[in-house]
């Protein structure tokens, strides 16, 4: 009985992000490269917390279309590239963005699906 109670308490206490779908998608789609803690990998994958795209919907274009030769354009290493995530719905993109901003950006303001759809329409 005690272990079960402990398990329930642990699970509820550890789920401290209100953006559960965003967290799950981040873990599956992004953490391979940007890592669970968002810090990236040396000069191969950039950290997220210091990105200029943090704090709002601006990141949507990078997620939907990928990014190439931008952050690491000065690097001689060849695959300076992040893949595009074409299959994600705007709801999913919004949840990822909110998870990332809620976890690594202060002060946090929630991004809406409408803002993300606007941003996606305006992608370069």
């Amino acid at each position: 009985m005690l272990p079960i109670l402990l398990l329930i308490l642990t699970v509820s206490a550890c789920n401290d992000s209100p953006y559960m779908q965003g967290k799950r998608l981040y873990t599956v789609r992004c953490a391979n490269c940007h890592m669970e803690d968002g810090t990236g990998l040396s000069r191969l994958i950039p950290p997220l917390a210091t990105s200029k795209l943090m704090g709002g919907a601006a990141m949507a274009c990078v997620i939907a279309n990928g990014l190439r030769d931008t952050i690491f354009r000065d690097s001689v290493y060849l695959p300076r590239e992040m893949p595009a995530f074409k299959g994600l719905s705007s709801t999913e993109v919004t949840n990822i963005i909110n998870y990332i901003n809620h976890t690594w950006h202060k002060p946090f303001t929630e991004t809406t699906i409408l803002e993300v759809e606007e941003a996606l329409k305006a992608c370069p």
Partner: peptide, 9 residues
Amino acid sequence: MNKFCCLFI
């Protein structure tokens, strides 16, 4: 991670 999470872990 919050305080309680640490505690339970």
